[in-house]
Computed example of a mutant assay.
Amino acid sequence: MTREIELLWGLREPGRRGPKPKLNREGVVRAAVAVADAEGLEGVSMQRVARELGYTTMSLYRHVDSKEDLLVLMVDAAMAQDPPEPRADGDWRAGIQAWVSGCREMYRHHPWVVFAAVFGPPLGPNGLRWMEAGLRELVGAGLTTADAVQVLMTVSGVVRDTCRIELDMRRAAEAAGSTLAERERAHARSLGRVVTPERFPTIAAMLDDGVMTAADTAAPAAPTDDMSFSLERILDGVEVYVERQRRPEASAR
């Protein structure tokens, strides 16, 4: 991990003499993020970024050693938006909800990030700012730092995977020439042809309840618009756990 720290914090940039070059690492990363925003992660290559900048591919290697290093820098750059500030009222649940909203906004602005490989906790300056903000709220709830890390991993995983699922659904709908709402309704109709109360009683009840459909004038909620129930139950669990830890004699009964 030492190498990643040096890369993300600019500790490995060679010293230069003379005038500042027109092309620098920040410019390369900025251009790569723009390519990924427009074309997806699969569109990013050293050649493509160089073409975007109007330089040769070899020029990029003076600032970034490899595409792998470039992707590490891109992910941290995508998190440049400021995380939520500490709440004056100490409402940790509202703080986590704001943190989740910020993550969701970042993934929607840079959807390719959900497909970037994750090899561990964030190491870059922007990633660490977001990690600090999330842990701050959970520690404020009464969790130890170790427990707060576990909960933050769960919450961030839910947000990331839900955003990825939504993106996949939207891409599939666009490829079929339909909207997400139309695809949801078509999916429900298809299931209705094979699902019977005798074989799949719970799924049949779900279809009867209209969980996957909506009125023609309304669109079903996108997955990330409907995360509140899951998130609230996770936070309920944190609240109950903290309360039990404060009253060990009660939990022992």
Score class of each variant (00 low, 15 high):
Val149Leu: 09
Val149Pro: 00
Val149Gly: 10
Val149Trp: 01
Val149Met: 07
Val149Lys: 07
Val149Ile: 04
Gln150Pro: 00
Gln150Asp: 08
Gln150Lys: 02
Gln150Met: 03
Gln150Val: 04
Leu152Ser: 05
Leu152Phe: 00
Leu152His: 01
Met153Val: 14
Met153Trp: 00
Met153Asn: 05
Thr154Glu: 14
Thr154Asn: 13
Thr154Trp: 12
Thr154Arg: 13
Val155Ser: 03
Val155Arg: 03
Val155Gly: 10
Ser156Asn: 14
Ser156His: 07
Ser156Pro: 09
Gly157Arg: 00
Gly157Lys: 02
Gly157Tyr: 03
Gly157Asp: 05
Val158Tyr: 13
Val158Met: 15
Val159Asp: 06
Val159Trp: 00
Val159His: 00
Arg160Ile: 03
Arg160Tyr: 06
Asp161Thr: 10
Asp161Asn: 10
Asp161Ala: 10
Asp161Cys: 00
Thr162Lys: 02
Cys163Ala: 11
Cys163Lys: 15
Cys163Gly: 08
Cys163Ser: 13
Arg164Ser: 14
Arg164Phe: 13
Ile165Trp: 14
Ile165Met: 08
Ile165Phe: 14
Ile165His: 03
Ile165Ala: 02
Ile165Asn: 02
Ile165Leu: 13
Glu166Thr: 01
Leu167Met: 13
Leu167Val: 05
Leu167Ile: 07
Asp168Ser: 13
Asp168His: 08
Asp168Val: 11
Asp168Ile: 10
Asp168Pro: 03
Met169Ile: 01
Met169Lys: 05
Met169Asp: 01
Arg170Leu: 09
Arg170Ile: 06
Arg170Cys: 11
Arg171Cys: 05
Ala172Ile: 09
Ala172Lys: 09
Ala172Met: 13
Ala173Pro: 08
Ala173Tyr: 01
Ala173His: 14
Glu174Asp: 12
Glu174Ala: 08
Glu174Cys: 08
Glu174Trp: 08
Ala175Tyr: 02
Ala175Val: 11
Ala175His: 01
Ala175Lys: 06
Ala175Arg: 11
Ala176Asn: 04
Ala176Lys: 02
Ala176Glu: 13
Ala176His: 03
Ala176Val: 00
Gly177Lys: 00
Gly177Cys: 06
Ser178Asp: 07
Thr179Pro: 06
Thr179Arg: 05
Leu180Lys: 05
Leu180His: 06
Leu180Cys: 07
Leu180Glu: 15
Leu180Ile: 05
Leu180Asn: 15
